Simulated assay, not measured.
Amino acid sequence: MPTPPPAGPLVTRDTIAGGLRDLGVRPGETLLAHSSLSSLGWVCGGPVAVVQGLLDALGPEGTLVVPTQSGDLSDPAHWSRPPVPEEWWDTIRATMPAYDPRITPTLGVGVIPETVRTWPGALRSAHPHTSFAAIGPRATEIVDGHATDCRLGERSPLARLEALGARVLMLGAGYDSCTCFHLAEYRIPAPLVQVGRPGPHGWEVVTDVSITSERFDELGHDFERDRPVVRGSVGAARSRLFPLADAVAYAQRWLAVHRPREDDFPHPAA
């Protein structure tokens, strides 16, 4: 059977940039982007064209930021997709390469952030599980000082982005991936967890706030109902644009009422 032609639409660097401008992305602004390549349609040039389109819309004075998470640098005792035999755990902990912002690949955030991570001039923050990469004149200001015992709180790029008046772009991505909601978790009572990972001097364990994206879809639905969120399409991707600070403030109020009890929190893949 011959392979059927792609359904489209045909998307290019220029149509991505134009769609972002129509959505309201402004030259010179700082943008935290969550993205889904497959949602856009048939992209001529793939993720490279998407990043080029994003940078075109932002212009030379704008700064693009993406999550570049690497949660696989974690304790094998908590792996479930798939689990590994318990007799392997000690060897994995002893031999797992430590995080290196230059070479550690992303995991679970899509191919567009991985493309940004390797882009000429991109900078990446220091947290071994929840780093961010940035391109643009404010990149250093955003990624520097990401504390290695603060995944997504006050000493992370999210707080820097909030202070800079950044906006969030959901480019075909759902609210379950809206990283800035986690900043709100650090501002309300939350349990602490022990997080294991490979460090520069061997296996290490740090204490941090427990975070979970459970119910973020519901949170996002209510946020979009109650607060101004620009909605539109870029290619075939349903997209949203909103101020990061507005989303964090709303999430802080919402989570204080709706988040699960402490004993309902899922154990983190630490």
Rank of each mutant, 00 (worst) to 15 (best):
T12N: 10
D90W: 01
V195A: 12
R102P: 08
E61P: 00
E29P: 01
R160P: 00
P6E: 08
P9E: 03
D176E: 10
M1A: 14
S39M: 04
I16A: 06
C178H: 12
R261Q: 13
V116F: 11
S239E: 06
L158F: 09
H267P: 05
C178W: 07
G8V: 10
T95L: 12
P266G: 11
R225G: 01
V193M: 07
H182F: 12
V248I: 03
E204A: 06
S156T: 11
I135T: 08
S156H: 04
A256K: 02
D264H: 09
I16M: 07
D75G: 13
G28P: 01
A159F: 02
S74C: 15
E214I: 10
G153W: 08
V206G: 03
A166H: 09
W42E: 14
A256Y: 00
R160D: 01
Y186M: 00
R13Y: 09
Y250S: 02
G59F: 02
A251N: 00
R155A: 13
L183V: 15
V51E: 08
S74N: 14
T104N: 12
R215W: 14
G153Q: 11
L164A: 12
P200Q: 11
D14H: 06
P47G: 02
V209E: 09
P191T: 00
G18P: 05
V51G: 07
A190N: 14
D263I: 08
A251W: 06
V50A: 08
D217P: 00
V209N: 08
S70I: 01
P128Y: 13
F216W: 02
V230K: 06
R253A: 14
G45S: 10
S80C: 10
T106P: 06
P101V: 07
P76S: 08
Q194F: 12
A247S: 15
G136E: 05
G45M: 05
V48K: 09
V65K: 01
A184N: 15
S213Q: 15
A190R: 15
L152A: 11
P82Y: 03
G235E: 15
D22P: 04
P200R: 15
V111G: 05
C44Y: 09
V229M: 08
G59S: 01
T207N: 06
D75P: 15
R155L: 03
